[in-house]
């Protein structure tokens, strides 16, 4: 039996892959890395791309939009992102949550209309996000 390494690929929504493999290749931020059994411990963020898993000479592919790779000598863990992230989007979301709290503090009586407005605003934000995502995918291909 050949030497194998255990690979777990998980996202917040589900477990994507789990099993013993011969090798795994992942798109790290500094360039693609190939991990074989007994690799030294590594911790690195991943960028959007394809994870290739080599089992018995056959390849399996998984698309991820980013995440984190942890390598321990006998186990590789890939934490895939589901939320598309960008520094400025995070910033905007933080700002919004802050403003929300302030607004409610200042106008305690207007709760009802405000809740509605807020729902609309979140929807708009979600739309903006999906546009962003489309743009990114278009750029990659």
């Amino acid at each position: 039996m050949s030497i194998t390494i255990h690979v777990d690929i998980v996202s917040t929504e589900r477990e994507i892959y789990s099993g013993l493999v011969d090798a795994v290749f992942a798109p790290a931020v500094m360039g693609e890395v190939g991990i074989y059994p007994r690799h030294t411990p590594v911790l690195t963020p991943l960028k959007a791309g394809v994870i290739r898993v080599l089992v018995n000479g056959k390849e399996d592919n998984f698309y991820i939009s980013g995440g984190i790779l942890e390598v321990q000598p006998h186990v590789v863990t890939i934490l895939a992102d589901t939320a598309m992230r960008a520094a400025d989007l995070d910033e905007a979301a933080a700002l919004k949550a802050k403003l929300d709290a302030e607004h409610v503090l200042n106008n305690r009586d207007t709760n009802v209309g405000y809740a509605e407005a807020r729902v609309k605003f979140t929807e708009a934000l979600a739309q903006l996000r999906s546009i962003e995502r489309m743009r990114k995918i278009a750029k990659n291909y």
Binding site: T12, T82, A83, M84, R85, L89, D90, E91, A92, A93, A94, L95, K96, A97, K98, D100, A101, V104, A115, R118, V119, T122, R129
Partner: peptide
């Protein structure tokens, strides 16, 4: 900071703001 009206199936990105603060 606050996040409200998450609904029944919240998504991680809706929490990013509050957590980031």
């Amino acid at each position: 900071g606050q996040t409200v009206q998450l609904g029944d199936s919240p998504h991680v990105h809706e929490l990013i703001g509050t957590v980031k603060i």
